[in-house]
Design a protein around this nucleic acid. Structure first.
Lengths: 345, 345
DNA sequence: GTGAAAGCGCTAACAT
DNA sequence: ATGTTAGCGCTTTCAC
């Protein structure tokens, strides 16, 4: 609806051919040895008339949209914000457009959105893939097909082995191990891992790191695992688990929690129920950070969300430019920082 | 790069004309009375070969991209999340793509991003416009030009009088008035308005509502205004103001704060400095809500962020469809809820 | 140095 | 009931 001037019109106006105009405006005046006054004439007119290339036409002709697709689950703990910010920084820098869609924690929607982006001919896809619960019947067919069709894809924060060979993730395993070790060094001897029972590399790595610490520290560590069956942080699942542990007089003295929100809920429940382990308030370590003005006293594992986004775009662009083969595997792992704010009581 | 089958190829394969294929696949088989076996033949082949229309070509031909642009400032208080979620809900429902870009609190970037979206021929724009500080030299030329060129635009949360005639905003003025009245009814007699010194309708309306309450309640109300000169919540600006008020023994007994983050900072400063008004801890009312597990004891004004997003898309779509004239003015105002969680001390 | 012509994939007005 | 044709705006070979 905004009627803008086209190359053809410009050409007619200046009595040159569309080719010449295209060449000049495409920055190829030098290479094609366009006479400098022809060139100036064209550039002036273009500026004066506010010529802007029709990106659709360019994309069609060039087979390249300079547009990246982004698919996120609808995260309750809005770390998506941060990742997106990182993505946008680089996209802006590199002059790429961004089409975004959220999968709403729903594989069908995810598939539909991938299709939508493919139809719009994005040059590549950044995705935080859908995470199914253990036992859930789910195959990432949409992603697989997209990858199969040759679309460059970079997974963020989690990857799907054999399906997304390119990913940028955080060092979940080692951070988890270190956090658990920190709990142990603070005297904890009964550690609990608390998280959602999802099948994603991120959480699996965190669990792994947790057990590595528990198994290899020389001292005897008792471990407990609490895996929640629904995403709702306020589900009764957690309440029941804790009640059970308390009843058996078996409350862990240290918790490693996979998610910030979950940890807050845990702490709340510990407080309201006055749960103790051998008379002491259990320590909590958790992924995520305290909010300003709301210190929780938990050990914090700082996640490099923004950097995750930045790196992912960069990696995607090299894939698109074919600098690196699409068939290579390449998982980039960013370090995390552990902040010990825990206070003994 | 994903080589997909085209209508032409499909036509050649089935020995029909591209037109017929286009008609069938475009859902116009009925209207054009295509023979049902021709139709089935085409539909089968399309499904079998995984035909997908090239959206670029369609967009070019139809002069319509079915894509909406979204421009947000980079909000520190991530309410953008919520608005975006609302936008996406409706976009998904209505089968629209979303291109998003953030203006990074920078008018130059905002302008550049608008241009980028225009080049990509979005059908319409949703924007939370840049907010200049009072006295800052800024004219929303980019938005104005875009609007002038005929692009449908809906402003969200704030509008620019005479420039964005279509907007969806919250009932800032009345909510602000009610919150201030609530403070007064709780005994406050010296009210302070605390906010950033930005020139945006949202904040102006909040200030207005504040004064309405202060002026029209029958009782004598003293008012103080604290307008911060930088966006940084931790700026010394606020510290100095409070110190001044305390020194003059003139601390307000009720604060109306325009922003959640700012209110937290205020509360923090009151506590650490043990500021009082006539021996009592001042009350705080503020836009925004408490986080789960972190009750602040403030009066909360709940903002309809998600609904803002939903309504904005709907309005934009009616503009695009030309159902309603672009020259009409139409500011939609959504109500806010006030939650009294304040505790006297 | 510049231009003519073809074509990216699709749609729609106009045949037949 | 189906086909012919032209064209959206741009780029790019190839020719002069």
């Amino acid at each position: 609806m905004p009627k803008r001037i086209t190359i053809k019109e410009l050409a007619a106006l200046l009595e040159v051919s569309p080719t010449t105009v295209s060449l000049v405006l495409g920055g190829k005046a030098e290479t094609h040895r366009i006479a400098s006054d022809t060139r100036r004439k064209i550039e002036d007119a273009a500026a004066r008339l506010g010529y802007r290339p029709n990106h659709l036409a360019q994309a069609m002709r060039r087979g390249k949209t300079d547009t990246l697709g982004v698919i996120f689950p609808d995260v309750s703990e809005a770390y998506m914000n941060m990742v997106l910010r990182g993505i946008e920084q680089i996209a802006l820098e590199k002059n790429k457009g961004l089409m975004i869609a959220t999968s709403s924690l729903n594989p069908t929607v995810e598939a539909r959105n991938i299709q939508m982006l493919l139809d719009r001919r994005i040059d590549g896809l950044l995705i935080i893939p859908y995470a199914p619960f253990r036992g859930e019947d789910y195959r990432p067919t949409a992603i697989q097909e997209a990858a199969g069709s040759g679309l460059p894809i970079v997974a963020i924060d989690r990857h799907i082995p054999d399906i997304t060979p390119h990913a940028v993730i955080a060092a979940d395993e080692s951070a988890s191990r270190q956090a658990a070790e920190l709990l142990i060094s603070k005297g904890c001897r009964h550690l609990a891992y608390l998280g959602f029972d999802l099948v994603i590399t991120t959480l699996e790595n965190r669990r792994k790191g947790f057990y590595e610490a528990a198994m290899n520290t020389g001292v005897d560590i008792l471990t407990t695992e609490i895996l929640l069956k629904e995403l709702n942080i306020n589900s009764s699942d957690l309440t029941e688990h804790l009640k059970g542990l308390a009843a058996e007089n078996n409350m862990p003295d240290g918790f490693l929690v996979s998610t910030a929100g979950l940890a807050l809920r845990l702490q709340h429940l510990m407080r309201t129920n006055n749960y103790r382990a051998a008379g002491k308030v259990p320590l909590i370590a958790r992924f995520g950070e305290d909010l300003p003005y709301f210190p929780t006293g938990m050990i914090q594992i700082r996640q490099p969300h923004e950097e995750l986004g930045r790196r992912a775009v960069k990696k995607l662009l090299t894939l698109i430019d074919g600098v690196v083969g699409k068939n290579t595997t390449d998982i980039e792992i960013l370090p995390m920082e552990i902040n010990d704010e825990a206070q003994h009581h």
